[in-house]
Design a protein around this nucleic acid. Sequence first.
DNA 1: ACAAAAGTGTTGAGAGTACACCCATGC
DNA 2: GCATGGGTGTACTCTCAACACTTTTGT
Lengths: 221, 221
Amino acid sequence: MSFEDYPKPAVTVDIVIFTIKDNDLKVLLVKRGIEPFKGMWAIPGGFVRINESLEDAARRELREETGVKDVYLEQLYTFGDLGRDPRGRVITVAYFALVNSENLKLKATTDVKEAKWFSVRKLPPLAFDHEKILKYALKRLRWKFEYTTVAFSLLPKKFTLSELQRIYEIVFNKKFDKRNFRKKILSLNILKKEGKKRNVSHRPPQLYSLKKKIGEIVEIL
Amino acid sequence: MSFEDYPKPAVTVDIVIFTIKDNDLKVLLVKRGIEPFKGMWAIPGGFVRINESLEDAARRELREETGVKDVYLEQLYTFGDLGRDPRGRVITVAYFALVNSENLKLKATTDVKEAKWFSVRKLPPLAFDHEKILKYALKRLRWKFEYTTVAFSLLPKKFTLSELQRIYEIVFNKKFDKRNFRKKILSLNILKKEGKKRNVSHRPPQLYSLKKKIGEIVEIL
DNA sequence: ACAAAAGTGTTGAGAGTACACCCATGC
DNA sequence: GCATGGGTGTACTCTCAACACTTTTGT
């Protein structure tokens, strides 16, 4: 079979965008403005253009939806079962992203009526096989939290250890011992002291910033 | 942009097939019989047919190349940079496979002049971005060896602990202490005793088989 | 002075690591 | 009886988990 007359599947990227907001782990979903699954919630995504790389496509979609910078973005898995899109053969390369909820604004595009943050514990029914993709992303997210410094991408540059611990507690949905948590994190030698936080009505906490680059494998918990 | 008039990239699967042979970790490469990169070594792969899933495509390629059953197959990563194939835009979904070298026969197809096992330590120059893919596969392989039972897919159903240890030593290219290795593996409670091996000119070793399914995460080493 | 969150050490259990000799069989 | 791998135990170190009180600030 030659290269040109070969019947090609369509290729999309879908991005599972996580953030922490209101003490909860949230995922960004968009309400579909076109068929199929019009009016249903879905993970944001779109077709890969012929002259952009997969990661470029993912970053473009991310920017179109959220306008954020400073994101952690990682390829998740490629879903290519037959019949996952009623329009025909569509293979999707799924990514997951972690954004700091402070500096983002949701947008709406032609394909999208509405974008909204949903708690990962209260999801609506999803279009396509997006529930499967989201579940997979959550698993990977938790795994990455255990072995890498991705958690820091959900925080501002300077942060306190309590803020970091809160993020871990939200993602794993369980409490950690404060002393053990701090001991563990500090023993990794990945943090720099950055002065103290002012204007809090209690003992002012130590601020830290990350020495290394986000996402590196460091065996966290 | 509508679904049909959308210019689509081509989609291939490439499979990094590992085995242990002659006390070495080997990878299967094929000599390309067609342009581009004709005559160069490459990871086996091919176009995804419009009516087969990605994993089906990978298994088909695997069968076409090796005729093996009882393989461990896992999706690795999807490579989609521009210019990775001179013929045009080609996205490849890479898989990696572990096969037991005992029951396999290499084949040749129209696209392939020759297939051969190469030591991962002595690789020829590779076509496309296949060196990058192979390096990535090796990293993932070692990681999987630490955390899962994939190693067992390189062994026959019944095996001795020394055979298992040899596989780990080859993959990590270092020696492990016999007593500690055995203690660790046995403490996982994933093995069943299966009688003793006969016809060896030394003390007959205990044979074991795996209780659980191959590839599960079990925190091995 | 009180509310609120920050910060801090010790102990016990379990896992990992280092290390050397006897055992069962085939020839 | 000897060559060949098979099989076994102990002591030390290090990491992980459990646990409660004092400190510093703003109001």
